[in-house]
């Protein structure tokens, strides 16, 4: 006996095998990302007032990446539809666009967004030293307006050796705009556009610092969840790109010549996965960039 319904649908369920498989897989993926997103909610609710950072990510770049993924979602459907209409040439082009969109998305993440974080620095000031750094924190101004206090001074670190060398007693940083001009009402809310660190330099004594680090996963609960979730999402995008490339290469052509419906099914299954990856990104974009 052969395994039935690999290409054609079983009459009573109306599905072929791989389609059942991919939907089940996506259900488990919902639970996987569900676990991570609930961790995000848990950590954010647990955070002290004002401790959860806002406006650290570049919204226009994130919007562009969102648009790229949405475009690729459309092109993958077009690729599938082309196969269904047996127009292989069109399939080839649509698939190429889809793959390129995935690659651009990953490129933006890995070449621009993540490295920019790694070069940024933030120091959380001890409670009893907050007053000393009032010119950079502007907590009096915030208190007047009834806003939660700031505890972190961030910017570009000039003396990297301070991170490891115990003989260096202070951090020297070019301040972010929010710390350069903290009492300015324009700084009360995060900016939509990313503004690079200013020329203004501040020195912070290590003795006054609770915890300081570059914007790495270990910097804070925020960056821990940001890097873990976007990292895992990035792996999913990479997996999608690999599968699409496999279907786009001559392997796909051969399968098309043998059984075009089988290739269309494979593209459909991969496409369902791709849509799911896009959907997760929509949540990531909303949670990390916008909220």
């Amino acid at each position: 006996m052969e395994i039935p319904y690999t290409v054609t649908a079983r009459p009573d369920t109306g599905l072929w095998n791989a389609k059942v498989g991919i939907w089940l897989f996506l259900a488990s993926e919902v639970m996987l990302f569900g676990g991570l997103f609930s961790a995000y909610v848990f950590l954010r609710l647990d955070a002290d007032p004002g401790a959860w950072p806002h406006g650290l990510l570049n919204v226009p770049v994130g919007t562009m990446n969102t648009a790229i993924l949405i475009v690729s979602s459309v092109t993958v459907v077009m690729a599938w539809a082309s196969l269904k209409m047996r127009r292989f040439r069109a399939y080839w082009w649509y698939m190429l666009v889809t793959i390129l969109c995935g690659v651009i998305f990953l490129g933006v993440k890995l070449i621009y967004e993540w490295p920019q974080k790694f070069e940024h620095f933030g120091a959380f000031i001890k409670k009893d030293a907050l007053e000393k750094y009032e010119p950079y924190l502007g907590n009096h101004h915030l208190a007047e307006k009834g806003l939660p206090p700031r505890t972190e001074i961030s910017g570009h670190l000039h003396n990297h050796e301070a991170l490891h060398d115990e003989n260096v007693k202070e951090y020297e940083i070019a301040l972010d705009p929010v710390n350069a001009d903290p009492a300015n009402p324009a700084m009360d809310r995060p900016h939509f556009l990313y503004i690079p660190p200013t020329e203004k330099v501040a020195k912070i004594e290590k003795a006054d610092v609770e915890y300081a680090n570059m914007f790495l996963p270990k910097h804070s609960a925020y960056f821990a969840s940001y890097f873990t979730i976007t990292g895992l999402h990035g792996l999913h995008v990479l997996a999608g790109v690999i599968v699409f490339t496999y279907l786009w290469l001559p392997v796909g052509t051969k399968l098309y010549k043998r059984n075009p419906e089988h290739l269309a099914n494979r593209v459909e299954v991969a496409g369902l996965f791709w849509h799911f990856v896009d959907l997760i990104w929509i949540y990531v974009f909303a949670l990390f960039y916008l909220l």
Binding site: L36, K218, A224
Partner: peptide, 23 residues
């Protein structure tokens, strides 16, 4: 449906141990 949330937790604990995060 029950194993993937543990997988997410295991990934987070791995981050805590290897990357120094504080999940």
């Amino acid at each position: 449906l029950a194993f993937p949330p543990l997988e997410s937790a295991v990934v987070m604990q791995l981050m805590d141990r290897v990357a120094g995060t504080s999940f």
